[in-house]
Design a protein around this nucleic acid. Structure first.
Length: 499
DNA sequence: GGACGGTGAAACTTCAGGTTGCCTC
DNA sequence: GAAGTTTCACCGTCC
């Protein structure tokens, strides 16, 4: 197969050739920035602009109350029938792109591996531009499994008999390398996810909490049958790991060993220890929290209760130090000073103490702090563009983070409830509402109204309408000016007035 | 002499994704 | 590893 070399860029040439055939293509790229750049470059050459695409572009700008530079860039690409797709996009924009690719309006998508994973978005051609990607160990080849995922998007069963997956090589040497490694290579072995400690901890606790297993023997028997054990082979070591975990769960008071009041003979006890969940342990399992996280949250709650902490920053910071919030924002050389300064400022109120600078966990602590700073900025009503500039966080990523944090705050409230820390519950709930809406405390009463988010609540507040009482007092005309007719009516209705 | 501006080379920085966890009265 | 960004030395111009 020969592709005309219209430009020096091979990826671009393939895309233009695909368009000439009247087909669609996906271009898999290595970074978010790369995806946007690739889409932009392609969009400059497609000459597809039409009315439907212009409308699509305009729609994509409406995803946020105030479009970010990312939104504008997407709109420019969409006008030419091209899109980029990565986790930083707002959910509405992702959906818009997906449906319009499926119906054929959008011809080319440049994307990060997002599209290869979940969604079923097949295309005639898949261009796999980057087979290397940055990871903790530096730049390296992606797994064969991942290559297969991407290549598997080529060919739409309903429309084409064939599909083409094309890798881009920059040299003869690279071409051979790709052939050996990916085209003729074997996918790597699959490893059991149980091998990861947090998963194992969670699993053991949930087995005990649900009374699925009652004794150590049963627990061992259960794990003996898993894929993990099959891979692990060394059963003695496996038992040792599980025993260590049980011990931890016991010290954290999530499970009890068989009590002295139980009628079990001494010899039997030695062979087989019985485990029961505690009330808290049961709840932790239901919440699907990693027991370590739960333990850390409980420690934080106790401290908050003892010190009468009410500051939202303290709770925000506490949840950011848990494993569940990872990956965290990275503290680079540029924001190192700012993070340090904030840490000094927050120091007295924080529930999780700063490790020493020599501690291997120190960097992650700084990252957690930066993540908390970002979420805090959001709660102080910072707009999306500013968050992008200051923290390099895009709307889609913000949503993933706030959603995650919301769940952790909820879990924290549940634990505080079991610990009878009522003041703490109140403060956490305040944090949760503010985080969800990205608003300051003073807007909370207004946010209870359906159809009112941070933007509308703020404009009402500015106009002197500060709580539900004010809403009742305000005239429909007043509200209509601020919110538009439909929303004004709905708000009035919610506060008990009927028109 | 000195403030300013343009230029290019070198140094530096950054880099994918996200299942389900819960509860809404 | 590669692309984008910042920094910095260097040079020329104008006052």
């Amino acid at each position: 197969m020969q592709i005309p070399e219209v430009t020096p860029d091979a990826t671009l040439n393939i895309c233009l050739d695909t368009l000439k055939k009247g087909k669609q293509a996906l271009v898999f790229v290595n970074t978010k920035r790369g995806a946007e750049k690739a889409a932009e470059d392609i969009s400059k050459k497609t000459k597809l602009a039409n009315a439907a695409l212009t409308q699509l572009a305009e729609e994509s700008l409406k995803a946020l109350s105030k479009p970010t530079v990312q939104c504008e860039r997407l709109a420019r690409c969409l006008k030419e029938g091209v899109a980029f797709h990565h986790a930083g996009l707002h959910a509405k924009q992702k959906e818009l792109i997906e449906t319009n690719f499926r119906n054929g309006t959008v011809k080319i998508i440049a994307c990060t591996p997002t599209l290869a994973m979940g969604l079923d978005l097949p295309a005639y051609r898949c261009v796999i531009r980057d087979l290397k990607r940055y990871s903790q160990r530096g730049m390296g080849f992606i797994p064969v499994l991942e290559y297969l995922q991407m290549a598997g998007r080529a060919g739409r069963p309903k429309f084409d008999n064939v599909g083409e997956a094309i890798c881009i090589a920059n040299s003869e040497h690279e071409k051979e390398d790709i052939q050996v490694r990916y085209i003729h290579g074997d996918p790597e072995d699959i490893y059991s996810k149980l091998a990861v400690e947090p998963v194992l901890r969670t699993y053991i606790l949930s087995l005990i909490a649900s009374n699925f297993v009652r004794t150590r023997k049963e627990l061992m028997a259960f794990f003996g049958k898993t894929f993990w054990a099959h891979q692990f082979k060394d059963l003695d070591k496996l038992e040792h790991i599980i025993d260590k975990m049980l011990e931890l769960l016991e010290t954290w008071e999530f499970i009890l060993p068989s009590g002295k009041d139980d009628f079990v003979s001494a010899s039997e006890l030695a062979k087989d220890v019985q485990h029961r969940p505690t009330v808290i342990g049961k709840r932790v399992a239901e919440l699907y929290l990693d027991p370590l996280t739960a333990h850390e949250l409980i420690t934080a709650i106790r401290k908050a209760n003892a010190t009468k902490t009410t500051n939202v920053v303290a709770f925000l910071h506490a949840i950011c130090t848990t494993l569940e919030m990872r990956p965290l924002l990275n503290v680079g050389t540029k924001d190192y000073d700012a993070v340090q300064r904030t840490l000094v400022e927050w120091d007295k109120q924080l529930l999780v103490n700063e490790p020493t600078a020599f501690d291997p966990e120190y960097d992650e602590y700084l990252n957690a702090t930066k993540t908390a700073m970002m979420l805090h900025a959001w709660m102080e009503e910072t707009d999306e563009q500013t968050l992008l500039d200051a923290f390099n966080v895009r709307p889609g990523e913000l949503h993933v983070k706030t959603d995650n944090a919301d769940w952790l705050l909820y879990s924290m409230m549940e634990l505080a409830n079991l610990l009878n820390c009522n003041d703490v519950i109140k403060s956490i709930n305040k944090t949760r509402v503010r985080l969800r809406y990205g608003a300051r405390e003073e807007l909370i009463p207004l946010l209870k109204l359906e159809g009112i988010g941070r933007i509308r609540a703020r404009s009402m507040f500015k106009a002197g309408i500060k709580d539900l009482g004010d809403v009742r007092k305000a005239t429909l005309e007043q509200l209509t000016v601020l919110l538009g007719k439909a929303v004004a009516l709905s708000v009035k209705k919610q506060t008990g007035e009927h028109h």
